[in-house]
């Protein structure tokens, strides 16, 4: 059954000769979807593996069983880990010790071994396993890792209710490769892609998304509801853009743009403008929950 959607079309208009409204030239008109794609499962679906370097050791944080919708196969988690390690800027020293934060994930000796081998490839060494599952703790101990067993108290869920402000976001994820079809990058912070985001590829960020290349796939910024987030790309050729709960599809015909463009939320939905023009023309209005023209704000 098709879901009914009420969409509100915005016309391409030139605002240049009306001083009261925005003094920019919108390059595109986009639909704002009133019925919001439910954003809460998205947050829960952060299957993103976390990697934190606290100087002495690297924390490798696996998503909880609940966060991965339980039936994500192990091979997917492992693939994601490999991808993450390959593309993440290597900010650690050779031989840095890793603490695997496995939370409630069940891991057997073989899986621990594959993780250790994968880490080995990037000169990291698995030392500690932190878990609140007895079996995992046993497997880790038998494989010779030191074990931190915690009570089954998911810290993460408590935090999920708090309002997400930029300062609580994770540090940016810097990817030095093209995101190809079938790959979905999720990150609870800003994503920077030094490459293309290809059709069939997806980037979902709690913060901003910056594509130093062609954006042809799907980008979702502010995925935890932050309307202030922006998406920018050298070439905007997207399949779909989302910012918080606003959705934009490309119009059938779009003139080729030579300069980098930036997408942001206005009271009329998502708009694009020249990236270089953005900062001087817009401010974020808390009351409008959108970016508005600076002269309009006064």
């Amino acid at each position: 059954m098709k879901r009914e959607r009420t969409t509100q079309k915005v016309d391409i208009r030139r605002y240049t000769d009306d001083p009261d409204v925005m003094t920019f030239e919108p390059t595109i008109s986009l639909d704002k979807v009133d019925e919001l794609p439910n954003s809460s499962p998205l947050v829960n679906r952060y299957s993103q593996i976390g990697l934190k370097n606290n100087g002495e050791q690297v924390l490798l944080i696996l998503p909880t069983q609940a966060e991965i919708n339980s039936d994500l196969p192990w091979s997917e988690t492992w693939q994601e880990l490999k991808h993450l390690l390959k593309t993440k800027e290597q900010s650690w020293q050779e031989g840095t010790k890793v603490c695997l934060v496995a939370k409630d994930r069940l891991l057997d000796a073989r899986q621990l071994q594959t993780i250790a081998e994968t880490l080995d490839d990037v000169k990291l060494s698995l030392a500690t396993v932190s878990t609140n599952r007895r079996q995992t703790a046993v497997a880790a101990a038998t494989s010779g890792y030191s074990v931190q067993q915690n009570s089954a108290q998911p810290l993460v869920e408590e935090q999920a209710d708090e309002e997400i402000t930029p300062s609580t976001l994770a540090e940016p994820l810097y990817l030095q490769s093209t995101v190809r079809s079938g790959v979905e990058i999720r990150h609870p912070g800003t994503i920077v892609i030094l490459g293309d985001l290809n059709p069939g590829g997806k980037a979902i960020a709690a913060g901003d998304i910056l594509v130093w290349g062609r954006l042809r796939g799907i980008a979702h910024a502010g995925a935890q509801g932050n309307l202030q987030c922006r998406i920018t790309a050298l070439k905007m050729e997207f399949t779909q853009l989302r910012i918080a709960d606003a959705v934009a599809r490309p119009p059938k015909l779009r003139p080729k743009r030579l300069s980098p463009e930036l997408a942001f939320v206005t009271p009329d939905g998502i708009r694009l403008t020249d990236t270089s023009e953005f900062a001087k023309n817009y401010v974020f209005s808390k009351s409008n929950k959108a970016w508005i023209g600076k002269n309009q704000a006064k």
Binding site: S177, R180, S181, G182, G200, G201
Partner: peptide, 13 residues
């Protein structure tokens, strides 16, 4: 082409 792109990604991984 879309599938080829996917496969290239998997090979690279």
């Amino acid at each position: 082409v879309r599938d080829a792109d996917r496969v290239i990604g998997l090979l690279e991984a």
